[in-house]
């Protein structure tokens, strides 16, 4: 396409060098203001926010300022920006729909940061998945399961789920139910169990352990043992203590019964031994 002389002259006549200079200055000021605000936001928020959120906020501030000043500069140059803004709005809506889940995860990540239901290193259970929190980033939370499998949970799901933080407090209670036979001496069993609990170094003295008969069940007298342990050791104590309680009962000759049922028959039952049956048949 060739541009004839008259068209070129028309275009050149429309350009006002003064407007261009002012627009350039406005844009440059915008860049400077954006840069300064970016540093300010980053330095302020880094004190109480994770680095990734602070950095993201600083960048967002910078780009918003630059876009605002760019639109102002275009306006100064006499370019009608209403169409641009409209197009930008429509693009924003389209992007909003397309990036809905990403934005949702992002916002959830920020809210999770503020609420702080857990921190890296905590043992948590989210949506039935339990493990140690390895990383909380802007889009997702990563948990290392007890089986060594890394689980990535989107922040939106974490935010809307019930979260059990197992290690949020320094101590945790463990419960065991041990059934002893009705014929056994319950007081002897109580003393045996108490001795095991008191000897264990990681069972806390305070809050005090509780041992009591919880239920007179169908086949056994159920004794409940409740102890408090340091939260970081609860799994180790659980494994060790249950074993020691069982062993102590066995060593003391206290029977842990199987479920059993006594059956009473209305009419007498005739029992035929094989020898008798042979005689009957002959």
């Amino acid at each position: 396409m060739t541009l004839n002389q008259s068209t070129l002259n028309t275009l050149l006549s429309r350009i006002n060098l003064e407007q261009i200079a002012v627009a350039t200055i406005v844009f440059a000021v915008g860049l400077l203001v954006g840069y300064l605000l970016r540093i300010l936001v980053h330095r302020t928020t880094i004190r109480f926010m994770p680095t990734y959120i602070s950095s993201l906020l600083a960048k967002a501030t910078y780009y918003v300022i630059v876009v605002i000043f760019a639109i102002m500069a275009l306006g100064i140059m006499g370019i009608n920006v209403s169409g641009l803004i409209l197009a930008g709005g429509i693009l924003g809506i389209i992007l909003g729909f397309a990036l809905q889940s990403i934005v949702s995860n992002l916002v959830s990540g920020i809210f999770l940061y503020w609420e702080r239901p857990f921190k890296p290193g905590d043992i948590v259970e989210i949506e039935g998945m339990a493990g140690t929190v390895v990383d909380i980033n802007i889009m997702s939370t990563r948990i290392l399961g007890f089986d060594g499998i890394m689980i990535r949970i989107p922040n939106e799901k974490v935010f809307t789920s019930t979260i059990k933080n197992i290690t949020a407090k320094p101590v945790r209670r463990l419960e065991f139910t041990l059934g002893i036979a009705y014929k056994e001496d319950a007081e002897k069993a109580y003393n045996v169990l108490r001795e095991v609990v008191e000897k264990h170094p990681l069972v806390l003295v305070e809050p005090p352990p509780e041992i009591y008969v919880e239920e007179l069940a169908d086949s056994s007298v159920n004794i409940k043992v409740r102890v408090w342990v340091p939260v970081r050791e609860w799994m180790n104590v659980r494994k060790e203590l249950l074993w020691k309680l069982k062993k102590a009962l066995s060593n003391a000759g206290i029977e842990i019964p199987f479920p059993q049922r006594d059956i009473w028959l209305r009419s007498p039952v005739k029992v035929i031994l094989s020898k008798d049956r042979d005689q009957e048949e002959s």
Binding site: V171, L204, P207
Partner: peptide, 19 residues
Amino acid sequence: NNMKLALYGSVNEGIIARY
């Protein structure tokens, strides 16, 4: 000594101490 621990304070904000 036999190691024993105790919680001093409440479950919510107590600390674990050697008893």
